[in-house]
Amino acid sequence: MKLSKLWLLVMAVVVALSGVAFAGPTLDNVKAKGFVQVGVNGELFGFGKPDEKGVWRGLDVDTGRAIAAAVFGDASKIKFIPLTAVQRFTGLQSGEVDVLCRNATQTLGRDTELGLDFAQVNYYDGQGFLVSKKNKKIKKAKDLNGATVCVLPGTTTELNVADYFRENKMKMKPVVIESNAELAKAFFAGRCDVLTSDASQLAGTRAVAPKPDDYIILPDIISKEPLAPAVRHGDNQWKDIVNYAVLAMIEAEDLGINSKNVDEMLKSATPAVQRFLGVTPGQHR
């Protein structure tokens, strides 16, 4: 809100003032600091949100930890910085965070116009619609003509939903609220007929509804949303680190290695596992 505007302004000033801060490779910078600064969501269940004990949980958070582990060999040398959808790319551009793991959709426009590079996709998402079961007329997305639509600002979501309604010659009335929590509250109170977002987010929002069973996600998925960590353009070394941190996690899952069984797996006879865990040295495949 007001604070985040201020924050954007500060970012703009930082971009204006910093002369050489971004010239050096990110890795040197991170090593000098002693920790990785990761931009995360902060409000999204399943991707990035602290649990009741204040420990950060979620896919994006774990991706950040994997990067820290890759750089320092210690997943705890990390600082999470929650960013709103509006702040996130400016935060990365200005050097406030080293890497952005914040369920950001990879798009051509963001890659070229924002000066970003996207690493390996860590979640394939798609935009859907959450509606109340009370509204019996809605069975599919095409039934939404004339609906009031709750949507977060600063996301590809806002664009996709406008495109979808235009394409199908339907009318919509968006209600755009910046905070995820406030938006969900307005939707549950019936301010909107439908809440639209990435399907994974809708599931997370539905889970925190007063009565989750009163709501359903429509079967239609209107977009492809490859979510990927992002880094600043032009630092290939750093991008490689982020890339292979994600790939290593995917590979580990494929091989059935996890944090609980990793010591046991060291004794595994499977050649791929031996290579992956470095039991067989010098084999990076």
Binding site: E158, V176, E182
Partner: peptide
């Protein structure tokens, strides 16, 4: 922007995000 009325700042925020041109 906090309560979803599309005033100038709200529209400008969306614009900034779509174009990435914060400054």
């Amino acid at each position: 922007v906090a309560i979803g009325f599309p005033d100038f700042v709200s529209v400008a925020s969306t614009t900034i995000n779509q174009t990435g041109q914060a400054i």
